[in-house]
Design a protein around this nucleic acid. Structure first.
Lengths: 248, 248
DNA sequence: CGTATCCTTGATTCGCTTCAACATTAGTGG
DNA sequence: CCACTAATGTTGAAGCGAATCAAGGATACG
């Protein structure tokens, strides 16, 4: 089957069918023959250096991006200069979905380390979605997952206290590192305390204090950006077990 | 063109092509011939009484819903009972997108008043999206818009103070009422102070106090759920002009 | 090796929550 | 129609958690 489809496999081109991130990325759940077609879709790769923007709010929307290597943050900026980190993205995750709505990106995407993305032309994606069975569904799932994730962040920002937020953040990071084959208990954060704080709706000092407190209590080990989770059950309990029994 | 397509226009069935909400809803931007096809998609209407659930977290995902009349809230619930309103939806807006991701709804949708929705089978939507040019794009835009909206709420919850949040909420409601042909300056809120508070990450008392304060300052008139915006410019300034010059 | 960035910790302030009492409205049944 | 009750909204006083202000220390980077 696959051999019968004559695709020029350019060594420089990204091949989804060859990519080891397939299970985390857009192609997940697609058949082999679908995957071959997908290879056509993903045009170029693009390297983004640390601190550089992949795109900015206001940029015309042309493509979405799959992270091949590295990590990013996205943030929105208010007119008065206040900004809010809306998410941290890791390998296999999709960036740029915000642009579809108006044809213009509504947030900034900044690399947290030297990174590389696959550029997926949205026009081509639209076209291919009409043809390829599994692609449309998977793309919808990716968008829906983003919506569900955002709801989780709203819950976090709206109903949790500082230490609960940080615990939830750490458990989430751990889970995502695990999904990528890294240790669940030990990892390196690529973002600063200030960025974590912005994401969690806290000041950087509060984040720092919460880290220190977790360490005192033996829940985690902290050495700057290097984190060891020593008691994940304890962290989990911290989230559920708020002040005193019952609702908010 | 339209006459050549033999569609049985059942009086009881919803016809998107006839619906006066088209401009706010999924069919927006589609051609007349596309619209005729869409009429097939929208199966039944469903009435939902005040306080009743359209769906609950955990329900299997089968359809998305377009609000024909009335309004809803969506909320997510934590294991310990804390809950967070993630949004308020009005006529023409789409509910249920959260379910695509896992095939199971991740939040509750509750009618704020006696309401009616158009039930759109997701399986059929997927199928029709392959065929109908404009439908896929419009659906993607609806999902993307939801993501952008969620980012706005994150900004609100993460970086704004109580009165800024309420001002932003009121201006947003005003704008949405306007888009539906209602007065921009005078409207009736369907949700309680507690629900507003949950959405804005505040306690109901704080919401009530902020309402009172706005009234004292002549920004709005409040009579329970009936709101009059007297100084929208003032409300807008309140959002941008935080404590003292410069970013956070 | 020097400098800018990032992180930690303490003292104080401030905004929101909590607790509490009361007012108002809406809904119910006699 | 009105009395009764539950739900919702308002307002005050006190407490608490996170922000702010401030200083010093560790780390990464050129």
């Amino acid at each position: 089957m696959r051999a019968s489809v004559p695709i020029s496999v350019n060594g420089l081109k990204t091949a989804c069918s060859q990519c080891n991130l397939v299970e985390l990325c857009l192609p997940f759940g697609m058949s082999d023959s679908d995957l071959d077609q997908l290879d056509e879709l993903v045009g170029a790769r693009r390297k983004v250096k640390r601190q550089q923007n992949l795109y900015r709010a206001g940029d015309p929307f042309e493509a979405i991006y799959a992270i091949r290597a590295g990590s990013f943050k996205t943030d929105v900026v208010l007119e008065d200069g206040r900004d809010q980190v809306t998410g941290f993205q890791m390998t296999g995750e999709i960036l740029g979905l915000d642009g579809i709505s108006t044809g213009t990106h509504s947030c900034n995407a900044v690399a947290l380390e030297d990174s590389e993305v696959c550029v997926i032309s949205y026009a081509k994606l639209e076209e291919l979605s009409h043809k390829v069975e599994g692609l449309q569904l998977q793309f919808h799932k990716v968008m829906s997952r983003e919506i569900v994730r955002d709801h989780g962040v709203m819950m976090l920002l709206g109903s949790m206290r500082a230490e609960e937020r940080l615990a939830a953040f750490l458990l989430n990071m751990s889970q995502r590192f695990t999904a990528r084959g890294f240790s669940a208990a030990e990892f390196h954060l690529r973002m600063t305390r200030e960025e974590i704080g912005s994401y969690l709706g806290l000041k950087l000092e509060t984040v720092s204090r919460a880290f220190s407190r977790f360490q005192e209590e033996g829940l985690i080990g902290v050495q700057q950006k290097h984190i060891r989770l020593l008691d994940t059950a304890g962290l989990r309990k911290l989230i559920q077990h708020q002040t005193a029994g019952g609702g908010r």
